[in-house]
C-alpha cells in the first residue's frame, strides 16, 4: 500500500435522483518522460495511467490518463444518486502502484 492519501470530496448525504459531484485530487509527480533534471538527464516516464470509480462494487466511471495530464492530477465527475452506498476510487501508476480510497454516501 502506498502512503499517498488521495483527497476526495463526496457529499455525505444526497436525495434520490440528485446529481452529485465527486472531486478528486492525488499527489503524484506525473513525469511525462520529456522533462530533464538539474544534471540534464531525462527523467523516465512515471505517470498515473488509470483512474476508476466503483459504486457498491460496480464500475461506473473510468479514465485513461496520458503524459499530458498535469502534476497532481485533478479529476471530477458526476453521478446520479439512487441508493446509499460506497464509492471505491482507485488510481494506478506506471510502476503498478495502486492508490485507493473509499467514501460513503447516504441517499434518502
Amino acid at each position: 500500500m502506498s502512503s499517498i492519501k488521495p483527497r476526495v470530496k463526496v457529499p455525505k448525504e444526497a436525495s434520490i435522483d440528485e446529481i452529485v459531484e465527486i472531486k478528486t485530487l492525488i499527489r503524484h509527480p506525473m513525469h511525462s518522460g520529456r522533462m530533464k533534471d538539474a544534471d540534464g538527464q531525462t527523467i523516465p516516464r512515471h505517470i498515473i495511467n488509470s483512474f476508476s470509480a466503483k459504486f457498491n462494487g460496480k464500475e461506473i466511471f473510468q479514465m485513461n490518463l496520458e503524459p499530458s495530464i498535469s502534476t497532481n492530477p485533478y479529476i471530477s465527475f458526476q453521478y446520479k444518486a439512487k441508493e446509499s452506498g460506497t464509492f471505491d476510487l482507485e488510481w494506478i501508476d506506471d510502476n503498478g502502484e495502486i492508490y485507493s480510497i473509499s467514501k460513503n454516501m447516504v441517499v434518502s
Binding site: D17, I19, S32, F55, K58, E59, I60, F61, M63, P67, S68, I69, S70, P73, Y74, I75, S76, F77, Q78, Y79, K80, K82
Partner: peptide, 14 residues
C-alpha cells in the same frame, strides 16, 4: 456509464 445520469467531467492538463 448510463448510471452516472450525466456525462460531465473536469481535469487539468499540460
Amino acid at each position: 456509464t448510463p448510471v452516472m445520469g450525466s456525462c460531465s467531467a473536469t481535469t487539468k492538463m499540460r
